[in-house]
Amino acid sequence: MRDVRSWWGKHGHLVLFLTPALVIYGMFMAYPLISSLTYSVYEWDGYLRRGFNGLDNFVTVLTRWPYNERFWGAISHNALFFVLTFAIQTTLGLFVAVLLARKWRGFAFFQAAYFLPHTLSLVVVGFLWRMLLNPTWGAVGQGLRRVGLGDWVQPWLGQSDTALVTIILVNAWAWLGFPILVYLAAVQAIPREFHEAAVVDGASPWQDFRHVTLPLLLPTIAMVTILTFIWDFNAFELVFVMQGASGSPSYATDLLATFFYRTAFGDPTTGGEPGQIGIAAAIGVLMLIIIGFVSAFGVRFTQRSQTEY
């Protein structure tokens, strides 16, 4: 008893400090994430767990129609989502950040403007662009018609070959402020002397960017790219709000998260067999593997590029 009391006297405050955080984090984050791995190797009847069935759920997702077609379709859409977003933020976003780093008059306003859409809910972003892109009454179509480009107006969100790219661009509109913000902070953290030395050596602005700014930014670019990848492979709201849970038209905008949602929680009207917990869990585990693999790889790259300088 005395042992317990003296242990408590020495460590009691630590228990007090750590327990609440551990309980909440362990119970509502660590436990669900870890046990979702086990969900995928059982057979499920609605929300009731039946017998162990090994990798059956994974085999279903990867080989059995319609799951395999949806899964590979969704993966390719998520991949395009990431690649295009990455391309926009590391060219346009980075360029804007380098320009903004000059801190001229009015640049704080520009920065605030770029970030503003990021504060909107994706529900609002989705509905706003759904209205603006309406081919009959939307502002985009009406604007094009007024400047004589009426031929360009298309039902962008209703066609299989334009819907996904349109969604990705809408997402970029809402998202780009964040990479700009982080890149700007990183550019401004580069000591002024580095640039001065380059200029003294006769470097052009492009050479200064290519050989001074860019190498020093690589760790930041890698970090933002990993974050973007994780976020893009979890994207859900925009497609759900603009195209519905089945990623209309005809699954052209279906993503892993909407596929997962349909399989686990959807109702029959959203296209798919709802309440397939085991199969949904398998989709979730595959997402976890993709995200885990890429972020581990990315983190290693970040560390390597950091040690170089």
Partner: peptide, 30 residues
């Protein structure tokens, strides 16, 4: 500094990159 510090810190840190959404099924049933 205490014995479990490193382990606990890693435990917390491990979740930094993983979106909680991926655990939605068990979370929902919980």
């Amino acid at each position: 500094s205490f014995r479990l510090r490193g382990v606990l810190f890693l435990f917390f840190l491990a979740g930094i990159m993983i979106p909680i959404r991926l655990g939605i099924l068990p979370l929902y049933l919980l």
